[in-house]
Amino acid sequence: MEFKVRSYRFNPEVDTQAYYKEYAIQDFPGMTVLNALMKIKYELDGTLSFRRSCRSAICGSCAMKINGITKLACKTQVKPEIMKFGIVNVEPLANMPVVRDLIVDQEGFFDTIKAIKPYLLTEGENEELSGFKTLKEGEKIKQPVYSREQFKNLTGNNDTPNCILCECCYSECNGVSGNKKYLGPAALAKLYRYSEDPRDNDRDVSRLLNGSKPDGMWDCVHCQACEEFCPKGISPVKAIVRLHEKTIKNSITSTPGAKHVVSIAQSIKKTGKLDEAKVALGTAGIAGVIRDLPVVISAALKGKMPPLKLEPIKNMDDVKLAYKELGLEEK
């Protein structure tokens, strides 16, 4: 079958603006989008630029937008794309500046990874176990012993250690689209992974405080795109929500994001419902309500103001019991 690849092209040395170029090529059974791009590069147009290395969905180099969705080119077969979209449209990753054609500048992404300290914090801890020294005659190496159970939150087939840093989630993340400084799914999932590592010596919850800063974990918009489009089956958003839970359980609740969550939980505990007025006040405070006065007035004029006092749902005690059973009455 002959099919068309339509590629985004941009070379800052000669082009004033980006354009698309089409290539007609012949497929072969099992052909991947990366195979197609390599065929174009070797046989039709040597100037087409893209990253790749392993060709087996391990190195994470070949991520790009394929028919509008970020995927690994080496893991994406041509045939289903053609059947669904009639063409293979390739574009560089979103949320990152383009260097040339399908190659993006990854610096901003790796800055987010560096920002969460992607290594075990051990400094100054237990000299005997972590310091360097020469063993004496007959002395055995002392190593800490961990149980499998202690790692249960950071292992498993669909978990964060499987991340190959391909940036698919970062490219699809709506939170990053809205705020380029947001840490994003890959970094935050990694932050959660380190916060759960029993070997990590983070005694003063510095990781959770770090993640609670503006542009951190509370900027997740819950769009679920990171989970949907991760080529390794990881769910960064689930890790971020666990990070939220852990942060609140550690009483780091002074941020608007944490206040929002706590207000909703309190509202349900009281009436079984989400009290829109109280949650807005609890999250943004009086200052927030004043800032939004035009919206509040407009809503009031349209009869859209939520009731100031909500009637509880029927059998409200049943809901209260859930809080009690989980020891959350006082939270």
Binding site: V241, E245, I248, I264, I268, L328
Partner: peptide
């Protein structure tokens, strides 16, 4: 509870 309750407990 939307996405919030999960982040609470």
């Amino acid at each position: 509870g939307g996405g919030a309750l999960d982040g609470f407990d």
